[in-house]
Write a protein that binds this DNA or RNA. Sequence first.
DNA 1: TGATTCTGTTGGAACGTTCCAACAAGCGGG
DNA 2: CCCGCTTGTTGGAACGTTCCAACAGAATCA
Lengths: 338, 338
Amino acid sequence: MGGRRDRRPTIVDVARKAGVSKSLVSLVMRGASNVSEASRQAVLEAAQELGYRPNAMARSLVQQRSFVIGVMVSDLSNPFFIDVIQGATEAAREAGYRALVNTGGRQKDNEEDAIETLVRLQVDGLVLAGSIVDAQFIERVGAEVPTVITNRHSRSKVIDSIVIHDRKGAAMAVDHLVGLGHRKIVHITGGRGAGARNRLNGYRQAMKRHGLEEEIRVVAGAYTEKGGAEGVARLVDEGVEFTAILAPNDLAALGVLEALNARGFRVPEDVSVVGYDDTFLAGLGHIDMTSVRQDARQMGAQAVEMLIERADGQRTTTDHIVLEPTLTIRSSTAPPPH
Amino acid sequence: MGGRRDRRPTIVDVARKAGVSKSLVSLVMRGASNVSEASRQAVLEAAQELGYRPNAMARSLVQQRSFVIGVMVSDLSNPFFIDVIQGATEAAREAGYRALVNTGGRQKDNEEDAIETLVRLQVDGLVLAGSIVDAQFIERVGAEVPTVITNRHSRSKVIDSIVIHDRKGAAMAVDHLVGLGHRKIVHITGGRGAGARNRLNGYRQAMKRHGLEEEIRVVAGAYTEKGGAEGVARLVDEGVEFTAILAPNDLAALGVLEALNARGFRVPEDVSVVGYDDTFLAGLGHIDMTSVRQDARQMGAQAVEMLIERADGQRTTTDHIVLEPTLTIRSSTAPPPH
DNA sequence: TGATTCTGTTGGAACGTTCCAACAAGCGGG
DNA sequence: CCCGCTTGTTGGAACGTTCCAACAGAATCA
């Protein structure tokens, strides 16, 4: 029992057992067409009996191709990225590739390390989802392996990017609120997070467009529940008046809801709240929050498709794709009081 | 620009450029001690200039060691597993390993495929988190690579396991509710999910222990929001009376909260609700739900530590670890009405 | 001085695959 | 009967590393 350390059987072991050459075993394992039925059976049987599994590393070494797509995701606790991963995983599988995920936990060093690990493993392509590492570092990596970066603008000549139009998304949220009659609309920012800057600009521009330049109010926050709650605390401390809040993402919006609740504001009767990303959190019946929708799944899938296109040599130019956001209206927004 | 396809530089290229042998380059890259300062500098410089990165596959091939731990996680949308991943990632990093994640999306075929991929990549160890594949399949894998399975009981002689005492956890929830004065406590099950059976048994036994055998009421559910909501629907349809609900996990508990809310029940005034896993969802200020705590992070970390112990050959026996759950009491539980 | 140890360096053999040129056997056609 | 073609099969070279036994030269020792 526990016959673990007996060293895994190799293609040569199978060949010996089946009484053929290793080349033939290789052919059978890859499903080649011109192999006699007799040999095929003998090989398969021997492989079965020995519990043989091809060594993917040895294979990639000679093929110069691993059929693995590496996905480096900045923050696993953000449901948005989970959807990106699932989209990527599925698309990879459909194309005969596998997606492997590595995370850096929003720490620069660890993210670099995670990326480095994947590159050394000779992945055929790399998806960087919301990474915070330097553009310079990414550029170097991109020179070696096809890379797509998501949720972060890039003008690189080497690296593809795929983002969702953040400025437009924020503007849609403002439009919706103004349409309901709100004027005192404030924005809690996402700090240095990916895309936060553009969401802020979108808010500003939309406010101006509606002639509400005077009403623009912005406080610092972050892409976390805590960031949202602190934003509300700042607003209240500074005595800012508001009837609607645009949060930088859903997680922060949850913090906003909580903080408002703790201070006796009712949502949406007293204050309307809009989230961003439209993750499953926003859809939870108990929360049911209006949120700007980004199709994370599609983003992940598309990123992988772009990589495979490159890996197959079908494309040599660089692409920068911008997807359109939509607005999912739920019950956290309503006309302002009186 | 875009000098991608120039073939990556190898150790030989570096050697040539530095005017030394490839062996020496290898020594420098691995930080060996007895290398002259002059050679070291020359090699590092050449490597830097060429943008050389060691090929991890070639390395593992000869070392018979990849320093990669594979983590196959059943369901990425369950926040519980995210914590397992994070614990595993961190523990691996501390030990000089890397964790790579692959998911099967709760589909048997895909899970098997995900596991197979990792094994072929010659991972040094495998963590199976909440996997639903056959015990037989797992057993075969375990014979080849050190494997730890979590959240699922195992008596295997080959595979380590690490679970949290589900029976005890469910019992703690019942104890808490009974302590508050509840008698009509119902359980919505987790269906065929990992550990669901034991949670059900824990509920039953605890009810008996409190002399509430007559009050035992069980309806089918699942480890999803939908599963929880459907459970409530069944309870109401069947006209079951209850003052407290034990959900199979947090996600389901959210569905329960929503369904109760929709039917005009107030929580906790009319009905108390207890979740399971104590994920960040339960802690969200807006939800603030009592939940049985399982330390997922620690579980992930411990799994990796067990694997590395094995990989280093420090241990040849099989371990089956049972962790203790605790109860996090929040505001979704209170004494029953009147 | 000659033997011994230490320091730094080296080439070739592995690791487990795939690729490729080459071949043997069988077959049909002239 | 020989030629060319097809069908299966093969051994050796490659992939990019690490390992290992072996070395040259300097330093140490008796």
